[in-house]
Computed example of a mutant assay.
Amino acid sequence: MSQRVTNIVLTATIAIGLGVAGVATMAQASQRDKPVRVAIRDVKGTRIGTLAVVNKDGARTRVTVKVHHLAPGYHGFHIHAVGVCDPKSVDPATGLVSPFFSAGGHLDLAPGGHSHPAHSGDMPPLLVRKDGTGSASFITDRFRAAQLSDADGSAVIVHALPDNFANVPSRYAPNGPDEATLKTGDSGPRAACGAIKPIKASK
């Protein structure tokens, strides 16, 4: 085989390889860009709602949530960092069962981290009506759908209490917000959880 023919064959082989790799990369990107839809379940495993996260454009994401059979009033509503919803998980700091503690703290994508309510996963409070139902839809630029399906996934948590967004003025508390307030906004126990699983890369 002449050198010229050999070069043509090698060029064609590389081009085909790059083409296949390109298709695989685009397929993975497309998969990661898919909307996130998960069921939200309470401690007993009963489905009490759904969450949908859909990318709108290059910077904005629409979040939609619908719930039922919850206590009326405001509930803290956040994306947590780990996609594991274990109702029997234990808080190692106390040794006590703490439902959905397995979901970790609030999602925070920023280098160096933030305090509440500036975490990436901090969202508007969820208002539940007297009949136990609630819904909300809003636009955020704090995360993309793909970022919720990273290596360890993430989870949506509905808390039992309202979120004060760490708004503790010095006139009410001389020392300002404490550590718990800066982490969670004093939203109380985790009442319900929906696990967002990692997306496995195509081989």
Rank of each mutant, 00 (worst) to 15 (best):
T64M: 07
H119Y: 07
H78L: 04
A173G: 09
D178N: 09
P198S: 11
G153D: 00
A39P: 01
N164D: 12
A27T: 08
P87W: 01
P87K: 02
T64F: 03
G17F: 10
V97D: 00
S170M: 15
K130H: 14
A195I: 11
V168T: 01
L148N: 09
M26Y: 13
R171M: 14
A180Q: 06
T11S: 14
K203H: 12
G185C: 06
G185F: 03
A192C: 08
A145L: 02
A191N: 07
A151I: 12
T94L: 05
T13A: 15
D91N: 15
L126Q: 02
L96P: 02
K197A: 13
L148Y: 08
V90W: 10
G105P: 03
A103V: 04
G73R: 05
C85I: 02
S154C: 08
S30Y: 10
I48S: 01
Q147F: 03
G45N: 00
E179R: 11
A195R: 05
T6R: 15
S30N: 12
V5G: 09
F100L: 00
K183Y: 09
L70Q: 07
D131G: 03
G105S: 02
R60D: 03
R190K: 15
G153Q: 10
V9P: 00
T140Q: 09
G73C: 04
I40Q: 05
A166Y: 05
K44L: 06
A118E: 13
A39C: 11
G17M: 02
T181K: 07
V82R: 01
M1N: 11
P87D: 00
R4A: 15
V168H: 05
D122S: 14
A24V: 14
V156F: 08
D186R: 06
L182M: 08
A166D: 03
G22H: 01
H75T: 10
V20H: 07
G188N: 05
F138L: 07
D150Q: 10
F138W: 07
D86R: 08
I139T: 13
R144Q: 07
M26L: 13
A27K: 08
G194C: 05
T64H: 08
A27N: 11
C85A: 07
F77T: 01
V84A: 04
V54R: 04
R144K: 13
I199A: 09
V156C: 11
G19N: 06
F101K: 02
S149W: 12
T64E: 10
G185T: 00
P87Y: 02
P111D: 15
G49R: 10
G19M: 05
N7M: 15
A180G: 05
V38A: 02
C193Q: 00
K130W: 10
I14K: 13
P111L: 13
S154G: 12
V53W: 04
D131F: 10
S170N: 13
R144N: 04
P169C: 07
Y74S: 15
K183T: 02
F77A: 02
T181F: 06
T64W: 01
G22P: 04
V156K: 03
G49T: 07
I199N: 13
P35A: 14
F101E: 10
R171I: 14
K200T: 11
Q3A: 15
H106K: 11
H114E: 11
D42K: 02
G17K: 07
G58A: 12
A12F: 00
G83Y: 02
A39H: 09
D150G: 14
G22Y: 03
T184I: 06
R41Y: 12
K197F: 14
H78K: 09
A160S: 14
